[in-house]
């Protein structure tokens, strides 16, 4: 066998690319561009890892086939499959994001329903009486930081930032108070006991304060009127040595501004 016989064939085989019509080239280019887009999209990778892998494999196959003579149809086929896998992955990712958003909104809806039920239960007189009492109470603890209201540990899930339904009534009244006093602002400050790492506690205290702020915002209090800060294990109000003292230290404080909207300085 003379190996020179094969040389022209080999050349033909290697010149593959030039066998592709501009149409095929375009489809392959689209598939490449599409894959470059999805491979860097974390949501798509999370939602449809298998389809991303298949898109990649099909594309690699299409690219490999460009170097073989007479394979234009195959190139086009695998480019098409790669594009489709990419589109499927993209759609799955959008669906997943929607589902996650839905789960969040579902929680919000439940919370609003509870709050609404609570609000309906309270008669007008009750509200008026409560407000008078609150005002008296608030003035009672007016110190150098202004009016401060303390929400106890029992209003939160243990070790979590989520508010329990028991917090609804109090926070509804705080929201009501802020609606009646539109110039007042609040700063919501989270605190914890000293169990666990300082970082964890700082994050937990901030997240709890944020939960309270979210609640007020859900009830229509403008975000600009609500500041949020986490102090973690700092500024305990009782000894951390006893369980009772620790429970007292786990709290969220709502600091009210004066009637002109001036808040005391942050700690």
């Amino acid at each position: 066998m003379n190996k020179w016989f094969f040389a022209p064939m080999l050349l033909l085989g290697l010149s593959g690319c030039s066998n592709l019509s501009s149409n095929d080239q375009q489809l392959l280019g689209e598939a490449q561009a599409s894959f470059n887009r999805i491979k860097n999209d974390a949501d798509i990778l999370r939602a449809a890892p298998k389809d991303v892998v298949r898109a990649s494999e099909s594309l690699a196959r299409a690219e490999r086939l460009t170097s073989y003579w007479g394979s234009a149809e195959d190139v086009q086929h695998y480019a098409y499959l790669s594009l489709r896998y990419g589109e499927i992955a993209q759609q799955q990712s959008l669906t997943l994001l929607n589902q996650e958003r839905q789960a969040q909104l579902e929680l919000e809806r439940q919370r609003l329903q509870l709050t609404l039920r609570e609000a309906k239960l309270l008669s007008v007189q009750q509200q008026t009486a409560w407000l008078a009492e609150q005002m008296a109470m608030l003035q009672g603890v007016e110190g150098e930081r202004g009016l401060v209201m303390t929400l106890g540990d029992v209003l939160f899930e243990v070790g979590e930032a989520d508010l329990l339904p028991a917090a609804n009534r109090t926070l509804l009244q705080v929201a009501h108070f802020l609606q009646l006093n539109p110039r007042r602002k609040v700063r919501i400050e989270g605190y914890t006991d000293n169990t666990g790492s300082a970082d964890f506690n700082l994050e937990l205290s901030r997240a709890r304060a944020q939960s309270v702020a979210d609640f007020l915002q859900d009830l229509g209090i403008a975000a600009e009127r609500v500041e949020v800060v986490g102090h973690g294990i700092d500024f305990p109000v009782a000894e951390n040595a006893s369980a009772r003292g620790r429970a007292q230290n786990r709290r969220v404080e709502i600091v009210f501004s004066d009637e002109q909207g001036r808040l005391s300085a942050e700690r």
């Binding site: 489709r84 499927i88 799955q92 929607n98 589902q99 958003r101």
Partner: peptide
């Protein structure tokens, strides 16, 4: 794959409506 894409689009569409 055409069928699977139609399915994925339909799921996305449905999730959008629920939202």
């Amino acid at each position: 794959l055409d069928a699977r894409l139609a399915e994925a689009e339909q799921m996305h569409h449905a999730s959008q409506e629920q939202l």
